[in-house]
Amino acid sequence: MYVYGLTSSGRTIATQGIGDAPVSTVEHGEVAAIVSRHPTTKLRAKRRDLLRHSDVLQAAFAAGPVVPLRFGTVFDSEGEVVESLLGARYEELVQLLQRVEGLAELRLRGAFVEHELLSEIVAEDARVAALRADPGANMVALGEAVADAVAARKAAAADEAVTSLGRHAVDVHVDEPGEELEVIRASFLVELGDVATFERAAEELARRHRGRMKFDLIGPMPPHSFVSLDGERG
């Protein structure tokens, strides 16, 4: 049994899971595991399977609260799901479900547009402008000056994003930005009733930085970044 996540009992999730297996639920008291049959205990992290995992959770999320599990959780049987998961951690799982009820994750990523950013830095940063204009300047010194200016602008923009959007969220989780010009990669836990307000704030943020930054916003979706159990590696 492949487990996608948890929801509250009494819900039907009519969709197809990994390997096109029909999705069903395994209920135990108030908590239900969202599952589909999976033939083996070996699983590759294939693009389509990852997307399917996500799609199943999204479908369930449209119907009620969802605690998403990380990709790759498989139990031998339906009985095992009840015994090792739902029953074994029952109280904690009920609490976790209650905690995420009515909440959604919205994930924002923002990155600088290189040409615009560098133009801005050459125009505004005296040190960079001077090194750039000096034919004898050391290339590493110039590059380092640019990198410093980039870092300062990244910090300022990330700060602004977290502050301006964080006020519409009940929790924020900021991840380390990946790529060189990536400014922010953060998840916001937002009450469903505040999603529209949050989106407007995100639009405002993007508008303030238009041309120099590109943003994308995913969600509302199940709170992937905000679920953990005590004593588990997250």
Binding site: R44, A45, L50, L51, H53, F71, F75, R233
Partner: peptide, 22 residues
């Protein structure tokens, strides 16, 4: 999906999570 599905989400007891190749 790599960002969210592989890196995040609830992790149940480590032994349950099977080897995900790739």
């Amino acid at each position: 999906v790599v960002d969210l599905i592989l890196d995040k989400g609830l992790v149940i007891d480590a032994y349950v999570r099977i080897s995900v190749i790739g």
